[in-house]
Design a protein around this nucleic acid. Structure first.
Lengths: 187, 187, 187, 187
DNA sequence: TATGAATGAGCATTCATTCAT
DNA sequence: AATGAATGAATGCTCATTCAT
């Protein structure tokens, strides 16, 4: 089924283009024409891959949020402490790609009220993201008393990310890292 | 004599209505018709108080963000530790009103790319919010080694707030408070 | 009846303001707010003097066109040839005031299709203007063979006026006059 | 393959429809909806051919004014005197089509104050029209002493046209022609 | 499959008009 | 008489969507 592979690849490319357009113009501001142009097609071509704009947005949201989990692969080879740090750093908007994901997530979060369907997708993806991170934290730091401790760590990651988006000049990559280190607690 | 109206009061009411509409429908989704209907007027009436939609949005954003600072009044009478906790709690989306402010802030944050003017307003307001909180933290907790420590505390507050918005069922008020307490560090 | 005098005077002032606004912004572009502001009042005040915008426009048109006839008073004391020249010169847009009248007339002419009522006013006023000029021409120049000759002279005046409006730099006052002189024919 | 359309031809059709609508309702009165309906389309279709209303108007103005020059082709085969008369007659609103062009020109002239850009287009087109006519006059009538003489002839043409628009019943085609003949001067 | 022409609903905005004061 | 708040119907324009090719 070579066709299907092509179609899926196309959908991915379109989702990437959509993510860029959303980061640039906001969700409502990102017209289908803009997304299509970003990807190098015309509007009419989108209809073959997504029935309507909502589906394109939902797919883009899912793809972007999954990317935040995808990196979180196996860190078993590292020492627990080193693995933990690596994992958390992967979740911060230190790279351009990760910043894009955070911006897109923020755009959808601000839209949540207007489309409960998208809000649900977002919430589920967020819970998956949260579960992944917390599970790994607990593996790497079995000494943490409860998962509330892990949750606090996650909140810190999210807070640092949020502040980095608002004030990217102040929050350099190294500052993000040192703030994270300071909050990780001590054995 | 014309019908006399307290224009500033009206602007405030309209900003409240706009905040509700934004939380419900997103920023672009909140049409002037919707805002006017929410406030009990018709579209044309808005023009008396705001020259255009951008001005309405800017005013709403400023009003909402200022509300987050307004509560942060005098805590001098309390013990430093108690004052600190009170202040931070005031910044969490534990009340319905504070939740609304966070949702509105999130909506504007997601819009940042499409209107640099609004993004600037938001950034300035955020910096003011940050400065207020950090200054108070440093007063209440002179033992904190540096303002980086205070910043970490702020990041924690923001992170808890963000997670509460994504998962309000899990993040009850008491959970928000205990997560904050756990991260406050010890004297 | 001092009140009536005041009201009529007001109407005249408003018509002047309207003529300026129309010359500046066109007929549809001249909003009631703009006219009122030009005259130093607010919108609501207009309603006391004109039932609606149409009436204001009709009054303004009539007043402006009548002004073009008003100057054409008694030239009996002059020699016929001198009187003729004076009369025709009075009809050219050589003065600022006369230019305004021509511009307003042009604006209404361009609008003629959309309001048959205004078009009728304009046509009647034009016929009156034409009759006045032609009658005077025939008095001053009894040697002209027919009123067709007079009509040709009027056409020349109108043509010079039109070209002066399109290219005011080229068509100085002296050029308008010499073109008129060259076309007046010889005894 | 998409539906192929001769875009330039379409633009021409739309300009024709716009000219009719402008003659009927004035420039501001001619809404895009009205123009589109006149041409048998809907509003949204216009955007494929003109970015906005201003562009539609500018194109219509240019097209209409150029038509007034287009007819003025080669008259070299005729006798000079006959050619002159033919040319000038072509410029009078004796045909329905030429009347439309004059009405449209008048509508734009009345609008000149509100859009300097359109006024410039109009002035340039007018100068081109003037230059064309005057050049031809000078070719056909080398005996005319100066180009001021030619200009006077043009003024006469314009004046006849203007009066014909104000009083089309009186100014039949034959009357226009005889007025022109009487003013052409004698060899 | 892909194009781009065409639709029609929706938006922000303007404005003549009405009306309480 | 005069103000200015409020209305509601347009208008220009954008855009997701449909569809003939």
């Amino acid at each position: 089924m070579p066709r299907l592979v092509d179609a899926d690849r196309r959908r991915g490319e379109l989702a990437d283009a959509a993510a860029c357009a959303i980061a640039r113009s906001g969700i409502d501001g990102a017209s289908l024409r803009e997304v299509a142009a970003e990807a190098g097609w015309t509007t009419g071509a989108l209809v073959h891959y997504f029935a309507n704009k909502r589906e394109l947005l939902a797919f883009t949201l899912r793809a972007s949020l999954n990317s935040r989990c995808a990196r979180r692969s196996d860190h078993a080879a590292l020492t627990p402490d080193r693995a933990l740090r690596t994992m958390l750093v992967d979740a911060l908007p230190t790279t351009e790609e990760m910043t894009l994901h955070w911006v897109v997530a923020l755009a959808f979060a601000g839209q949540a009220g207007s489309d409960p369907g998208l809000a649900l997708i977002q919430r589920n993806a967020y819970l998956k993201f949260r579960a992944t991170v917390i599970a790994l934290i607990e593996i790497c730091r079995p000494d943490l008393e409860s998962d509330q401790e892990a949750e606090r760590l996650l909140a810190l990651v999210n807070g640092i990310a949020l502040q980095s988006l608002f004030d990217p000049v102040l929050w350099t990559e190294s500052r993000q890292l040192s703030a994270l280190d300071a909050g990780r607690g001590h054995r």
